[in-house]
Amino acid sequence: MLKKKSFYIMTLIIGIVLFCSSFLLRGEELKTISGILIGIGAGLIGMSIVNLWMKGFEEKNPELVKENEIEFKDERNVMIRYRAKAKAGDIIQWFIMGIAYLLIIIDAPLWTILITVGGFVLYHIICLYYMNKYQKEM
């Protein structure tokens, strides 16, 4: 859900400050930091402008906002969304395992294989954690 208008005004100001401060950093050794500041600043400015525009649109079209909210909270849509996410997660886990096998075949460095297998294991740990959590809740 979208946050308050003041939040986006604040992120816009931070973005402008970061963007402008990047021009104060001169010298070869500060070039990387300056680049990072431009990137983050531009990102924040863009995000804030879009969200402020959305806020303005919401204020002018409360009917449409209500409709969108109903669509979002609709129990069938929620169920569809969760099922799609679960299915995507199932597919991704085997996709990650496939990448791990591929890395073994192409004789990739061990750390890349371990990270990939780690991702697969992490998926199952998170899965078990939430299954346990929901078992207690429901």
């Binding site: 109903i70 669509e71 909270k73 609709d74 129990e75 069938r76 849509n77």
Partner: peptide
């Protein structure tokens, strides 16, 4: 406060509602 599609799916028998609905 549900979508029109939900009503359509209920009528077609493709979707069973929650107890609350």
């Amino acid at each position: 406060e549900v979508s029109r599609q939900t009503i359509g799916s209920l009528e077609n028998g493709r979707y069973n509602p929650s107890i609350i609905l």
